[in-house]
Design a binder for these strands. Structure first.
Lengths: 334, 334
DNA sequence: CTGAAAGCGCTTACAG
DNA sequence: CTGAAAGCGCTTACAG
């Protein structure tokens, strides 16, 4: 146990101590490689003594495999635990995560650059990535999986949650429940997820001949949902129902209704969200929403990425998961 | 723009195209290096044409600097946005994050091994790290900063939030508010943070001659706080006040009080937490708690780590931040 | 089964 | 200012 050296121990050090060649040491750490039992024992003894661990960086250089995947998440991402889930999935597959948090202001191109320089084996991009970045990665031939990228052209691997059927069911049930006037709290304008959800909701509302419709904008967080609700209230009572582009804003809207406007939910106003965030299940809210099957989506993303890394010629694929309607008490439904 | 090649572009490719030596190319990407203006122009042209980016892995090997820091977070960590904050801090300092999520069951030693193999420049460990790991990193001489590691022996850099004064103030105010019987919802037994907070609370309670004291165990999440509250209720009414080892459990306890036991908070029972989680400020809860200055703590951690990387001989240091009492309406305070 | 040797893509003295 | 050369710590044919 004399690993306290100023320079890290290399395979040469081990070789010298074990009285073998450096290649023999290397073979001990290469799964299929052949090395005699007694030799291996000698080497492993030296490895123990010296506290040797192969240098993954050096290995990457020669194998052209870094065993690292980049994960890009947006700050205000719908699910903070998505990152944790991805981390676990990839760890189980022997891959490490190089994490990039995309601030909105930050020059996105810079991130591409960094990722590329580290020669990651692949990339998972969760939410809100400018098209420019998508193209950049495609050009670099970095195996990539997008989560909830809603473009129709499948130029990359994608795992999605179906934003349409859930949203339509929500609207349908609200109307059956008696709602005739609606408010919609949108998410950020540059969020495809928000845009799509709102489009789907509005399409269904129009299809059912609903015309009393007001809009307000939020930023996917609780606070902005709260403010947006008040905006919807401006000059009059609440609409029968408020549809929010995600759960966090819906919870903010519920808090605004109850605490800022002394309204009862769902008696005075129905409120629904989208995501299936853990907080939506807290009994103070018991939100009507659509749960995205995050775990399954993450597993699918990891599987696809791994398959793509192993065989880069694989065709692109889009895996679509359906959301699950979660009934709660935050809305009067029919 | 002919970067569509099966092999990545290297500095040799650029050199050939620009008609210069490979070392000249390298110098263009080394901050202080001297290269003639016209040469640089030629090279940069070739760089553009080929879409060349230096290989950070190869660079790491020679410079002995990976520009990566490992971040270990526990799954149930007190603050999911801690990771995001760290990511931003390090990005601003030109460092990349290799993320390790420590599942509880997972063999922690395996993580040490992985981290070591990647020859990261440093390590930030946020919450709950077994002593074995601490020692392993110390031995490897990996510059390390712990967040909220509460050991008194300073054998590593640490940034902490003072768990004592906040907890004592909380207890003191509850007693002044009239509370005489107390319940305490503990966090995981292996969490130093939980243990310390509970110790401090209990010490203050005893100092003030409070003897009616019940305990229940939770796991830092909402659901377990909710269950723990019901346990405290077993066989009788609620205590005057319930002290929770963190905010999430406190929110769960509030929900249990109101929704599972039809109690009014704070009329029937006062509830307090610790952390300053965003949700604690939601008007449904308006929790009395102690806010940890996360941003400042993360910045301090990043600063310390960087200083340590630049000069490994630096002495260990512990930076202690004080928590800020956040008054809310979830408790009757004096 | 084992060792000598080449090479992954860079950086960095060292001469010129 | 520039290029030839060594070397970072590995893996992997290739002989023996």
């Amino acid at each position: 146990m004399e690993s306290d050296r100023s320079k890290a121990v290399t395979s040469y050090d081990v070789a010298k101590r074990a009285g073998v060649s450096q290649s023999a040491v290397s073979r001990c750490f290469t799964p299929g490689a052949s090395v005699a039992k007694t030799t291996r024992a000698k080497i492993m003894k030296a490895v123990e003594d010296l506290g040797y661990r192969p240098n993954a960086i050096a290995r990457s250089l020669i194998t052209q495999r870094s065993n690292m995947v980049a994960v890009i998440v947006a700050n205000m991402g719908f699910n903070p635990e998505l990152t944790a889930q991805l981390s676990r999935s990839f760890a189980a597959r022997g891959l490490h995560i190089l994490l990039f948090t995309l601030d909105h202001e930050v020059e996105a191109d810079d991130v591409v650059d960094q990722i590329w320089q580290y020669r990651v084996d692949g990339l998972v991009a969760a939410v809100r990535l400018p098209r420019r970045l998508v193209d950049a990665f495609a050009k670099r031939r970095v195996p990539t999986v997008f989560v909830n990228r809603l473009d129709d052209d499948v130029r990359a691997n994608t795992v999605c949650c179906d934003q349409a059927s859930g949203e339509r069911m929500l609207v349908d049930k609200l109307i059956r429940g008696g709602a005739r006037t609606f408010g919609v709290i949108r998410g950020p304008l540059d969020s495809a997820v928000s845009v799509r959800r709102v489009e789907n909701a509005v399409a269904e509302l129009r299809a059912q001949s609903i015309t009393d419709l007001r809009f307000a904008d939020g930023a996917f967080d609780h606070e902005s949902g709260r403010r947006a609700f008040s905006l919807l209230m401006d000059g009059g009572g609440p609409p029968d129902a408020v549809i929010c582009a995600n759960d966090m804003m819906a919870l903010g809207a519920m808090d605004a209704a109850r605490h800022d406007h002394a309204l009862s939910v769902p008696k005075d106003v129905s409120i629904v969200g989208f995501d299936g965030a853990p907080q939506s299940r807290w009994p103070s809210y018991d939100l009507v929403t659509v749960r995205q099957p995050t775990r399954e989506m993450v597993e699918a993303a990891a599987d696809m990425l791994l398959a793509r890394i192993d065989d880069p010629t694989l065709a692109n694929e889009k895996r679509l998961f359906s959301g699950e309607l979660v009934l709660g008490t935050s809305a009067r439904l029919g």
